[in-house]
Write a protein that binds this DNA or RNA. Structure first.
Lengths: 264, 264
DNA sequence: CGGGGGTTTGACGAACGTCAATCGGGGTGG
DNA sequence: CCACCCCGATTGACGTTCGTCAAACCCCCG
């Protein structure tokens, strides 16, 4: 359930895990004004820590806007008999309840999958509302649209793709999203998820997820070990999973140059 | 593909198919001010007709805000090999592209499933933006939240429910939504969908949808004939499908009194 | 050296998809 | 008015995918 320990530290030596994922994300969606950049940077002063398993939102309860600085979370809902569906994974740079308007009521539960850090982001909402035509508002709007597009991609996976296609498609999406906030190391990225968590996201059983992962390994499409995954043949996976057609591809595309700019 | 002909006319004799579904919907979500009511009523002057199969939106193309006055539509996406997923059904009172902010780009295709009528609704967006604290803005916000909740319910269906549960759950959702705009006749409501369309929504094959419907009939849960469906034992269906837990139940609940008020 | 959560494997069964044929009803051309 | 036709609904036989059950196995930590 936790981020890989030694391996991670070794591979990202010299840079902190994710310098400013929220800034990278929002600035990647629309170049922010200087004031907006300061505002986003200021969020990290409000940093709060959560243990794995912490509940960030409960369905039906009020929901405070929040951005994720580090770690992974998941939006979920459960059936009375224990079946669980994960609607979305939240990675650094993602947000929660940012577009709820008035009456911010959570439509799903949200739980931390790893140890993580977040910050309340009401300031972002207010700043965007104060300047509806500004870059920040545009960026937040695009973030919302991206979320919607990803939800549609998830539905397409669940409804119309096989286990192999679904799994490849999800990995491609996660890779793109993590690359966009500077958290991918080329074709490699952290995947701190148990197979049970993957199963709940993909609408499969644990056992079948395991066999699907084995097949992706046998086909030399991925290498998966101790919380990290490497896409060995991205192009083949794109074709296998119809990634572009299934949506989210263009919108979640990595913009590595922007992340680099921010560090300069 | 068309609404049932003789039966429908007989059962709804004396009232037009759906007096003012958009008004019923929005007023049901938040009581509108008099000016808002006039604005919504004015939309029907812009009424446009569409044949079954008409394309209301294409993925990636600009999307103009629009409300549905009559008939059914579906949001879809296709895979290159022909597999199709329906993300949502749109019924009278529903809208399309109403919350897209700037850059209104369609995230999915939208096609008319029946002959239908719609009207451009940019006026609603502008009025809500002009009075962000007003009843209309609140109503549109709640409509957006309801849509999101329904999308989550759809994901839960696709990922974690059996064919029987999925089908019952969808019927319960549609019943609630149609009742909320005065289009249900007690436990009966129009269902102008082919089994192929249902299959694409439920993530099943046509044949399996057929067998699932047979079982719902055998179990005396529904009666389904020529474009109409009757829920014979709603409570049993709610338990079968875990309707409340799967979401959308409370939010999509019928508010028949409000529809009646509007007619007086 | 255990313990415990997560992973892997095998055997088996149920749910669902595919293929193919038939049926049925309503619309349409003759 | 009637025969034809076409799309959608229905049914049966069979194959595949995926789930369930159960038992190791593995590795990290305490």
């Amino acid at each position: 359930m936790l981020n890989a320990p030694s391996t991670e530290r070794k591979l990202l030596r010299g840079s902190r895990p994710a310098p400013e994922p929220v800034l990278a994300r929002l600035n990647g969606l629309a170049p922010l004004a200087a004031a907006d950049v300061l505002l986003v940077r200021g969020l990290s002063a409000l940093r709060e820590a959560h243990v794995a398993g912490a509940e960030l939102a409960r369905e039906g309860a009020p929901l405070r806007p929040r951005v994720i600085l580090s770690g992974w979370a998941a939006r979920t809902r459960m059936l009375p008999d224990g079946r669980r569906q994960i609607f979305a994974f939240l990675v650094p740079g993602d947000s929660l309840g940012l577009y709820a308007g008035r009456e911010p009521v959570a439509l799903s539960n949200c739980i931390a999958l790893t140890r993580m850090e977040s910050a309340p982001a009401a300031a972002l909402v207010e700043a965007a509302a104060a300047a509806p035509g500004g870059a920040l508002a545009l960026s937040l709007g695009r973030a919302a649209a991206t979320e919607d597009a990803q939800a549609l991609g998830h539905m397409l996976r669940l409804g119309r793709q096989t286990a192999l296609e679904r799994t490849a498609h999800l990995f491609l999406e996660l890779h793109g999203r993590l690359a966009a906030v500077g958290l991918a190391d080329g074709p490699r990225f952290p995947l701190p998820l148990t197979q049970e968590t993957l199963a709940d996201a993909l609408g499969l059983s644990i056992v079948h997820v395991n066999r699907t992962l084995q097949q992706l390994r046998r086909d030399r499409l991925i290498e998966l070990k101790s919380g990290w995954i490497e896409l060995l043949d991205r192009q083949a996976m794109v074709e296998l999973a119809d990634y572009a057609a299934a949506g989210g591809a263009a919108r979640a595309a990595a913009k590595p140059s922007l992340g680099a700019q921010l560090q300069g």
